[in-house]
């Protein structure tokens, strides 16, 4: 009840103030031109023509955007797709270099290079790897030099301005199987064998995908039509690829006597390709150990130093001793 009475008082006061207020609004101008111009602007704003053209502009903008980009932002879309379009998920394999501290198995890289050279190199290039990259990784300098010299490289021009052939050097890059992409397409029924230098990084599933693909060739299941010249592989997105199964037991003969089974060769060549994609892999993991140790130690010590600096402030005891009244 008290509040209501107070409100009534407030209303009365407000009305009194409003009565007092208009005293200051009495200024008037003899001319009304200023008022009329603003009035025509307002009538323009409120006209049907303005409304219609603004709506048209909005609809037109949206239509134009949709025409240009196909979709509208912030509007969800639904897709219909079959699982086979994405390919099967590759199987996760326990690679010997999986752990955060594990280096590559270099004996495997060496065998993998042999598989690449004898099998894959017939179609796939390895443009970003030079002979010198093999030195200290899988081959000695002399071995790499000998392998490079077996390949003839075009160099020049010489004094007569002509290009000439010379045996390869360590600084030369791996020879491509085809002179250019067009020749590679023509030799493979229109499909371009991809360069393998970065293939492990370039595919989802990385090493697991490469291994699964190499060992995953099977007969197409019932109902799946594979065109002539294509091969069925469930791990390949779409299921059909031009590359056929290339690894068969005993295809190569390893110099270290390892039995050359299909999966052994697939494992070795995948390790080799992983190394080709990440030559810095071993060094990177070693740096990782050092960085983690140093940074975590620094973190702990800095916490100690912070506490050391703050302890005198946080444990401060303020004692107030009131003055003793001695007068009375």
């Amino acid at each position: 009840m008290f509040a209501a009475a107070k409100n009534a008082g407030a209303l009365r006061a407000a009305s009194r103030a409003m009565k007092a207020g208009p005293r200051t609004t009495t200024a008037r101008f003899a001319s009304s031109s200023a008022g009329s111009s603003s009035g025509s602007f307002e009538s323009f704003l409120n006209s049907r023509l303005t409304l219609a053209s603004a709506s048209l502009a909005a609809v037109g903008t949206v239509a134009w955007y949709t025409h240009l980009y196909g979709t509208l932002p912030f509007v969800g879309e639904a897709h219909a797709s079959a699982a086979s379009d994405e390919g099967m998920h590759p199987i996760a394999y326990p690679w010997s270099h999986n752990g955060v501290l594990d280096t590559f198995d270099h004996a495997s890289i060496r065998r993998g290079y042999q598989v690449y050279r004898e099998v894959c190199a017939a179609c796939h290039s390895l443009n970003r790897i030079a002979w010198r990259n093999l030195v200290g990784v899988s081959h000695t300098a002399d071995e790499a030099r000998a392998m490079a010299e077996e390949v003839e490289y075009t160099d020049g021009p010489n004094d007569q301005g002509e290009m000439f052939e010379r045996p390869g050097k360590l600084a030369d890059y791996m020879p491509p199987p085809y002179p250019n992409d067009e020749a590679a397409r023509a030799g493979n029924g229109g499909a371009l064998p991809p360069d393998l230098s970065l293939i492990v990084k370039a595919r989802h599933g990385a090493s697991d995908y490469i291994f699964s693909l190499l060992t995953g060739y099977i007969d197409p299941p019932a109902g799946v039509e594979i065109r002539e010249g294509m091969n069925y592989n469930p791990f390949f997105p779409g299921g059909a690829l031009s590359m056929g199964r290339v690894l068969f037991d005993g295809l190569v003969e390893y110099e270290d006597g390892t039995p050359a089974t299909t999966s052994q060769m697939a494992k070795d060549v995948t390790t080799f390709l992983h190394w080709a994609s990440e030559p810095e892999h071993d060094e990177r993991k070693k740096y990782g150990i050092k960085a983690v140790i140093i940074l975590s130690t620094l973190f702990c010590i800095s916490i100690y130093v912070k506490r050391f600096k703050w302890i005198p402030i946080k444990t401060r005891k303020l004692v107030y001793e009131p003055p003793v009244n001695k007068g009375h």
Binding site: K6, G9, A13, A17, M18, G21, T25, G35, S36, S40
Partner: peptide, 15 residues
């Protein structure tokens, strides 16, 4: 069409 707009803003306490 001339408009005379009077805009008043006030905060009034009861007293």
């Amino acid at each position: 069409m001339a408009t005379l707009a009077a805009k008043k803003a006030f905060t009034i306490a009861p007293t």
